[in-house]
């Protein structure tokens, strides 16, 4: 939470909770101003009033004042449409740089009425809208363009609504603790994978066959069903995945140091990312070697994500 400079600044531009829990748009956080249409509506009412006075139209006054009252009521409804809405961070899947990072946000409506046409927008994103039924929740997402690898925070975004008449816009600025992991953009094309190295031989597993059982680990979603230890599961234990080692014949090391010297940091990461994807597609066990990080060879979704995350978060200054 950024420190507030003064109570006034705090009031004008409130920084709002970035906690893990839901953010509730309390009454003080919801702002409201007329829209262009609202101003046009006001001008219309002014003209109706002048017409009523000029022609001494009693019913003209009635209509004019009814519409003026409608404007006030619309303001309250618009404001209420947003007030006490609660927002919770939703699921965010990693993306490759250049793609759109889709931040899901869960909107929870604890009130006794439907909230219609709630919009969210961020500086770099087009607005998205959803309806939230009474006592229910709805999911909405903000798609931010990504340019750089690493963690992309959702940052401050805006929840707004102009419902029901479009005369007023109520909004609130919100920050949720939500971020998206952006993998490096894979290099285009298919640069040939490095040849299998002899490192496998050093591990001493050579000769035990390609599919030698290396141990059991906890099951992760995405593991191939063929590798699930079904017998162990039948004994009543939890789901376990069999791990195999020593697929030396098809094992490959994706090594930062072996890339051509004139490659820059991002170019190297792009090449390595492409290789990870290619190796995964070929079902070739692969390991990753970065200046400060090494991922032992493996295969599978989890392994791929580990590698990609390492690449995404690679810090040339040697953070990790």
């Amino acid at each position: 939470m950024p420190p507030s400079t003064s109570p006034v600044a705090d009031w004008i531009l409130p920084h709002q909770g970035t906690g893990h829990g839901p953010v509730v748009l309390t009454q003080r956080r919801v702002y409201i101003l007329p829209t262009g249409l609202g101003l046009l509506f006001a001008v219309t009412i002014g003209l109706l009033l002048i017409g009523s006075i000029n022609y001494n139209l009693s019913l003209g006054y009635v209509l004019t004042f009814l519409l003026a009252g409608l404007g006030v009521v619309a303001m309250l409804h618009t404001w209420r449409n947003l007030a006490r809405l609660s927002l919770r961070p939703g699921r965010v899947s990693p993306v490759y740089a250049g793609e759109h990072a889709v931040f899901a946000i869960t909107l929870e409506n604890h009130a006794g009425f439907d909230r219609i046409a709630i919009g969210v927008s961020a500086e770099a994103a087009t607005a998205a809208y959803t309806d939230v039924a009474a006592q229910a929740a709805a999911s909405i997402s903000i798609a931010l363009p990504t340019a750089r690898r690493g963690w992309l925070p959702l940052g401050r975004f805006r929840v707004f609504t102009t419902f029901p008449l479009g005369l007023f816009r109520a909004w609130s600025n919100v920050e949720l603790d939500e971020r998206c992991l952006v993998y490096p953009q894979p290099e285009p094309g298919e640069p040939p994978l490095p040849a299998a190295t002899a490192i496998a031989g050093e591990s001493g597993l050579h000769g035990r066959g390609a599919e030698d059982f290396a141990g059991l680990r906890e099951y992760h979603p995405g593991d191939s069903p063929r590798h699930v230890a079904w017998k162990a599961y039948a004994r009543g234990d939890q789901l376990l995945t069999k791990q195999f080692g020593g697929r030396a014949s098809s094992e490959v090391w994706l090594d930062w140091a072996l890339l051509p010297g004139h490659f820059g940091v991002e170019q190297r990461l792009a090449r390595l990312t492409r290789w990870v994807l290619m190796a995964e597609a070929d079902a070739t066990a692969y390991g990753l070697k970065l200046p400060h990080r090494e991922v032992p060879p493996g295969l599978g979704t989890t392994h791929r994500e580990t590698c990609l995350q390492a690449l995404a978060l690679y810090d040339p200054k040697g953070g990790r």
């Binding site: 004042f65 009814l66 003026a68 009252g69 409608l70 009521v73 619309a74 409804h77």
Partner: peptide, 10 residues
């Protein structure tokens, strides 16, 4: 509903 709520103000 909104018109009805506007009537007192009117």
């Amino acid at each position: 509903l909104m018109l009805a709520q506007a009537i007192p103000l009117m």
